[in-house]
Simulated scan of single mutants.
Amino acid sequence: MNLRTIGCVELNSVALGMHTADEMLKAAQVELVMARPTCPGRYIVVVTGDTGSVNSSVEVGREIGADMVVDWFTIPSVHFDVIPALSGTSIVPTIDALGVIETCTAASCIVAADAAAKAGNVSLIEIRMAAGLAGKAYVTMTGDVGSVNASVDAGVEGVGDGGPVLSHVVIPSPSDGLKAQLF
């Protein structure tokens, strides 16, 4: 699956989310990366394909979802760490400094993660989306302290007009007990 361009629509309705996912796939030559319910009763759809097709698909998703759309994005050149972090398959051998960005929506967290990964020499650990988080999401990353600081700042800035960033932190030297909980 070519994951250079990804697009997302996050909705406040599971039923309308499923309908939106179906229409997004029918509207353009895109592949489905993810379509699933999240907390609290939301639904997220992520597609990939060439930039024009993804833009068209997301636009159709926004039209179908109408006032139930919570957040959305298109990222033309997604960082290669984003999809493994999103699917929980990242391989991070050691954790140095730890950076965390917490957002109000899953879509804005993916945008923050992409911006953070592009800004510094960091490895994304995980993008945790909404499950058991009341609709919030967070991304964790590691690297040297300077890189993690720069990446967290860029991720916060990268969210822009999307769902607001609730909190962010850099832990220069996390305890072994905390590190063990990250995997």
Results as ranks from 00 to 15, higher is better:
Ile91His: 15
Leu98Gln: 02
Val170Thr: 11
Ile91Pro: 01
Leu178Val: 06
Pro164Glu: 15
Asn55Ile: 14
Phe80Ala: 15
Ala21Trp: 05
Ile171Arg: 04
Leu16Ile: 15
Ser77Leu: 10
Thr74Glu: 15
Thr48Leu: 01
Met24Arg: 05
Pro40Lys: 03
Asp144Val: 12
Cys39Tyr: 04
Ser56Glu: 11
Cys109Gln: 13
Gly17Phe: 08
Gly158Ile: 01
Gly61Asn: 07
Gly99His: 12
His19Val: 12
Met68Thr: 15
Thr103Ile: 04
Ala154Trp: 03
Ala66Gly: 11
Thr48Phe: 06
Glu102Asn: 05
Ala112Asp: 01
Pro84Ser: 12
Ala150Phe: 04
Ala131Cys: 13
Thr140Ala: 10
Ala137Ile: 04
Val9Gly: 07
Leu3Val: 11
Val111Pro: 00
Thr142Asp: 02
Pro76Gln: 14
Cys104Gly: 08
Asn121Tyr: 06
Ser13Met: 01
Ser108Asn: 12
Thr20Cys: 13
Cys8Trp: 04
Glu59Met: 10
Thr89Asn: 13
Ile91Ser: 11
His19Asp: 06
Leu98Pro: 09
Ser151Asp: 12
Asp22Val: 00
Leu178Gly: 01
Ala106Asn: 10
Asn2Leu: 11
Ala112Met: 05
Asp71Gln: 03
Gly17Cys: 09
Leu182Thr: 03
Ala130Thr: 08
Val69Asn: 12
Ser108Thr: 14
Thr89Leu: 14
Glu59Asn: 13
Cys8Met: 15
Gly163Lys: 06
Leu133Asn: 05
Thr142Leu: 00
Val46Asn: 05
Ser123Trp: 12
Leu86Ile: 03
Val122Ser: 08
Ala117Arg: 14
Ala154Tyr: 04
Val9His: 02
Val45Arg: 08
